[in-house]
Structure formats: structure tokens, C-alpha cells
Design a protein around this nucleic acid. Sequence first.
DNA 1: TATTTTATACCAACTGGTTTGTTTATTTTT
DNA 2: AAAAATAAACAAACCAGTTGGTATAAAATA
Lengths: 206, 206
Amino acid sequence: MPKDGQLTKDRILAESRSLVLKNGFAATSIDNILEKTGLTKGAFFYHFKSKSELAKALIEDFAGEDISYMNKALDKTATINEKDALERLLQFIQEFIDMMADLSDPPPGCLYASYLNETNQFDEDIRSYITSTILLWRQTLELLIGNVLEQRKMSIEVDSKSLADMLVVIFEGSYVVSKAVNEADLTAKQLTHLKNYYQLLFKEKK
Amino acid sequence: MPKDGQLTKDRILAESRSLVLKNGFAATSIDNILEKTGLTKGAFFYHFKSKSELAKALIEDFAGEDISYMNKALDKTATINEKDALERLLQFIQEFIDMMADLSDPPPGCLYASYLNETNQFDEDIRSYITSTILLWRQTLELLIGNVLEQRKMSIEVDSKSLADMLVVIFEGSYVVSKAVNEADLTAKQLTHLKNYYQLLFKEKK
DNA sequence: TATTTTATACCAACTGGTTTGTTTATTTTT
DNA sequence: AAAAATAAACAAACCAGTTGGTATAAAATA
């Protein structure tokens, strides 16, 4: 029975994420991480063979959580689908509003944005990993929106791709602004506007 | 006729901005900047007494441009004001749509976001400088929206503050996403949705 | 008008400290 | 015994910042 090194690895990942979100990746030294975790260099390099391998593990860990939130919201709203596609789309957004509604501090940030703001530091495989995760959000929303368009024959033309992108755009943008103005409820309010926009766009004209 | 050191200083600022937007501030070494400009250490420290003074000069330079774009859009739409406040608001947004419409590459990014993603590295005065600049955007939009609300007695309640924040939120968010998916027209499309939302929200119910 | 002085703008080499990563030997835990 | 860590020393590269000095042009002076 091996000693559980996964616990240590997870602690490194958790503290690193928090440091990277506040300082950026380059400004987060391995010594900083060791300070926070109380570990030694040997322990760190036992679990990650380089700092860039940590970068990879960090983003994969983060994206895993991210996509699992997406899937949870899909699952929770799955039953609405057949009956009313618009109601399902709106409830899907509402899941994230609820999620962001009772924060007492501004959200800690998004690792995609952190990495993209220092994008030259990372190799192509990390960059394309982020790209594909964000495209998965687009794809998912496009599907939900597509269902709405099918049910209601829209007279006006709708660009479902850019409409789908709005969720991630508003998440990312509201993280930036809420950091700047230090307002915890900003993200929830911005998402509510998105929900409202979808509603106005689709509900009025049938 | 003095030798013009301002030209050199401006070159340092321009190359630094471009490097910081791609690599982040911490990962941009002074040697990197010297490489790009062809200058030497002595020249750099003649113009900036430390790297953190460069950080300050960079963000002030950037914010100056930013606010001047805002004022240009205000000026261009100033005549519409009295007649139709909604038309003025929509035209104000349109100015930025036009600005972002004919880019052949994704926008290079926003220094506010760059700094906020490495926020712990900067002193309080830089952080509060960014805050006040973003609050100036909020204030300006709130004024434009306030004029609309005055002209049309809205039946529904409208949170003009969060409505005002949407412009910066969408700018920031679309910069992040357009970097990820490498689409040059993404920002213009997202801003068009914002314009559309304002229109739907205010035009229908008088 | 010729000469000296001064301030500006810049260069080249160097210093002290930090960073990532390695190595080796030892200890603890299961 | 295998896995998970500690401890401490070390190297190679890099980094911010310093120092001492140079070129140039404008201004002051003789």
C-alpha cells in the first residue's frame, strides 16, 4: 500500500493555482509554492519534473473542473429540453447566476485568462488545449441555442456562434472588471443581463 | 535644439507594451526590451529609474489612449444627445464596433487585464489607477443610459450601473476569447450584441 | 568667433541576488 | 521493500540595477 502522494500533489496544485491567479505564472516561483505548502524542492520535483509540467497539470485540473460545472448545468436542465428549448437555455444560464450569486468576494479568476495574458510563455499544446476547451463551451451553447431556433421559426437572422460565445465572454470580462472594482456580485449581475438578452431576443417574436 | 530623448522613451514604451501584452509583465525582462529596441541598459535606466516605474508609465500611457478613445466617441455623438438619448447611446457603441470591425488580427489585448492578472506584483497606486479608469467608463455609460431613462419613462426597473459595466465587460471578455480562438472579428460581433441588447431593452416599451 | 562648459542621451561591463533544476544521501511512512 | 518525502549543496542561466565613461549639441564665456 503506497503512501498517498496524491494528497501532496493536490496541495501543490491548489496552492499553485491560487498563487498563479494572483501573481501570474511567471511571477509564481517554485520557492513561493514551497513556502505555501511547507514542502521542499525534492518533494516538488518528485511530483512534477519541471515548472512547465506544473503549468500543464494546473490548466488540465482547472479545465476539468470547468467542464464539470458545464456538464452539471446541462444535467440539471436536461429534462426541460424537449418541452421548451428557450426555458432550458435560460435555466442553463440561471445555474451559473446561482453559482456566482452568493460570493462574498470577487471570483478568484480564470486560469485560461491568466495563461492567455502571458501566452508566449506556454507551448502550443497548452494554448490549443485552452482553445479547445473554450470551443467546447461555444459548441454546447450553440446546441442549446440551435434548439431554440428550431422550435421558434425566427424571422430575424441570428448568429448563433457569436450568441453562444457571449457566456464565456461575459464570464471572462466580468472577472476582469470585478477584480478592478472589487465587487463580488458583478459577475452574477452581468450573467443576468445575458439571460435577459436571450429572453428578449427569442421570447418576443415567435 | 535638444537631442530628442522622448523618441527613445516612446520606443521603449511601445515595445514594452507589445511584449507585456504577449508575455505578461513579470516575464518581460529589461533585456528583452533592450533586444527589441536595440538599446542598452544604461539607456533604459536613464529614462526609467526602475522596472516598476516603467510599469507605471506603461499603464498611464495606455489609459491615456483608452480614455481618449472614449472622449472621441463622446464628441462624435454629442449632437444627437438632446434629440434622442437612445440613438446617442447606440451610436456611441457603434463607434467602438466600427473601430474593431476591420481588424485582420485579434486585438493585441488590454493592459488593465494584463496587470489585473498579475495584480499582486503592482503597488496600490497602480491598482487604484486602473480602478478609477474603469469606473470612469462606468460613470460615462451610466450618464448616457440615465439620459435614455429620463426620456422614456421605463416601466421595468433598470440597474443602470451593471448595464453601464457591460461595455467594459464585453471588451475585456472578448479580448480573452478572441485570443483563445484567434478570431479577429469576435469583439465587433460581441459589441453588436450589446448594442442590440440596449435597443431591445429600451426601444420596445416606452 | 573661437573656446569652454554643461546637460542630455547613451554605451559596455559588472555586481549581487534569484531562479530553475540536479544531485546525493538520509529519513519516514505504509 | 517500495514510495514519499527531507535536507543541503550546487550549477548555470537570468535578472534588476549600478558604475564609470563617452558622444554630441546647445549655451556660456572669452
